[in-house]
Design a protein around this nucleic acid. Structure first.
Length: 287
DNA sequence: AATGCCTCCTGGCGGC
DNA sequence: TGCCGCCAGGAGGCAT
């Protein structure tokens, strides 16, 4: 679900609430998400100060004093909900009363000023781990990640090298977090449409020019989405409860049977299934 | 090494 | 109202 733009939007929403603040209590309400939580997670979080909130690919990294970092992945349905004094001007807010946790509220963070941050994840494909900060880069889930799309390392030359000789469809290659980190199903479809490239085309068959265009369009698509606060599908919201609005800018995602938005194209958006996932594209202008 | 399939889990929606 | 199948923003793990 949440791809790079949504995760970045969540991170930005959490910064004013958590960065520099102490977690006065962490309520870990079940033993696991996708994997078991690390030993003593609640105790290790309680009383810790969040010194910095970073993002790597689709992971939020909350650096704590105590030299540990909380690694959070939202999976398909994970949300970080903020409630309480921060950002509100409720008189006596410090004594704000929080309602009882709801279904799928798995981890609740109480912040020193009375704000409450709740990790809610119906499908539990999300994950959390807590590791030494100097070991984050070497963490099993982090170490395998390719470059950030906005990093200089993600160049046309780099992408060309990674795609060279690959028999896999370009769609699959771009979903591979080892090649470039942060893309998911929506933004791959959108970036391929912007590039006029079919998701079915084999990675090895792209020209240098197409690869260069693609790298640029990936960055452009993600930038546009971040600027819009991400995409709000179903119940996804920004951390502050606001809805992102990039979904209104989708050219192909969720538009099966509708007219292609390429000026003068006249094609119709179709849905193909590739390795079990929907690939929305326009057969007329995506080759 | 590269590729493709299965799986984890819950909920919303459309069809009957 | 109820039941059923399908679909959903991810990605690790495993067989080939």
């Amino acid at each position: 679900m949440p791809e790079l733009p949504e995760v970045e939007t969540v991170r930005r929403g959490l910064v004013p609430v958590m960065e520099g603040r102490v977690i006065t209590r962490a309520d870990v309400r079940r033993p696991d998400l996708r994997w078991p939580f690390p030993d003593g997670m609640a105790e290790r979080l309680t009383g810790a100060r969040v010194t910095r909130l970073r993002r790597r690919a689709k992971y939020i990294l909350a650096e704590l004093d105590r030299a540990e970092t909380l690694i959070v992945h939202l999976g398909m349905s994970g949300r970080m909900l903020i409630a309480g004094p921060s950002g509100t001007s409720v008189p006596g807010a410090f004594h704000h009363h929080h309602p009882a946790p709801e279904k799928h509220d798995h981890v609740v963070f109480d912040i020193e000023d009375g704000t409450r941050v709740t990790f809610n994840d119906a499908r539990r494909f999300g994950a959390m781990d807590l590791v030494a900060t100097d070991a984050v880069e070497a963490h099993k889930l982090i170490a395998v990640l390719g470059p950030e799309p906005f990093d200089n390392a993600f160049s046309a030359a780099y992408l060309a090298e990674k795609l060279e000789g690959r028999w896999t469809p370009i769609k699959s290659a771009l979903l591979d977090q080892r090649i470039v980190a942060g893309l998911g199903n929506i933004y791959v479809c959108e970036a391929l449409w912007r590039s006029g490239i079919s998701p079915l085309r084999l990675a090895r068959d792209l020209t240098k020019r197409q690869i260069s265009d693609l790298a640029g369009h990936i960055r452009e698509t993600l930038e546009d989405a971040i600027a819009a606060g991400g995409s709000s599908l179903r119940d996804y919201r920004q951390a502050d409860g606001e809805l992102g609005y990039f979904q209104h800018s989708f050219a192909v995602y969720g538009r099966e049977g509708e007219a292609c938005r390429t000026p003068g194209c006249g094609g119709t958006v179709v849905r193909d299934v590739q390795s079990g996932r929907s690939s929305l594209h326009c057969p007329a202008c995506q080759r």
